[in-house]
Amino acid sequence: MTTLYKLCFYVPVSHVETVKAAVFDAGAGRIGDYDRCSFQVLGQGQFRPLDGSNPYLGSQGQVETVEEYRVEMICQADCLEPAVRALHDAHPYEEPAIDLWQLAPLPV
């Protein structure tokens, strides 16, 4: 049985489809006989760029809020590294927020 992970990331509304497409193209989002599977919910992100940062949005030292999607999808272990690399390459932020959980097998 393949080890599965849940990949979760936050991305501004303007880039959600581009980033999802890149991660899907790298192999994430496959569940059985379905692909490009994900869940997303709109919310508000907050951050403050510090000295040395190169922010896509906002200015150093100023708190910025932005509408972002939280996107979740399943990722098999063999495509995890390419999917995270694709996410970083397609994401506009210098430091995208990414969560990753290893999933336990479902009892069937």
Rank of each mutant, 00 (worst) to 15 (best):
R85D: 12
P49I: 05
E17P: 15
P96W: 01
P107C: 13
V63W: 01
P49G: 05
R30T: 12
R70I: 10
V11G: 01
Q62K: 13
L103D: 14
L4T: 11
D33V: 15
H15K: 11
E68Y: 00
E95I: 05
P49V: 00
E72M: 03
D25H: 10
L4E: 09
A28E: 09
R36Q: 10
V16F: 07
C37S: 15
A28W: 05
L80Q: 04
V71S: 00
V23P: 10
I98A: 00
L100D: 05
A22Y: 12
V108A: 13
Q60W: 11
A26V: 11
T65E: 01
L42M: 13
D78Q: 11
C8A: 14
A77N: 06
D33A: 15
C75I: 05
W101Y: 06
F39I: 12
I98M: 00
C79R: 10
G52C: 12
P12T: 08
E81D: 10
L87I: 02
D25W: 06
G61D: 08
T2W: 15
D99M: 04
F9G: 07
E68I: 00
G43N: 07
E95H: 06
N54E: 01
Q76G: 10
S14P: 07
A77V: 03
D33G: 15
E94C: 00
C75W: 05
D33P: 13
L7N: 06
Y34I: 14
L4D: 08
F47D: 10
L103H: 07
D78Y: 08
I98K: 01
L50R: 09
Q76P: 15
L7S: 08
P82W: 03
L57A: 09
C8F: 12
A21W: 14
T2L: 14
A22I: 12
Q102F: 03
A104W: 06
S38D: 14
G45I: 03
L4M: 11
R48M: 12
A104G: 07
E67Q: 07
V66A: 02
Y56D: 02
V11P: 01
V16Y: 09
P12Y: 02
V41H: 13
L106T: 08
Q44K: 15
H91W: 01
I98F: 03
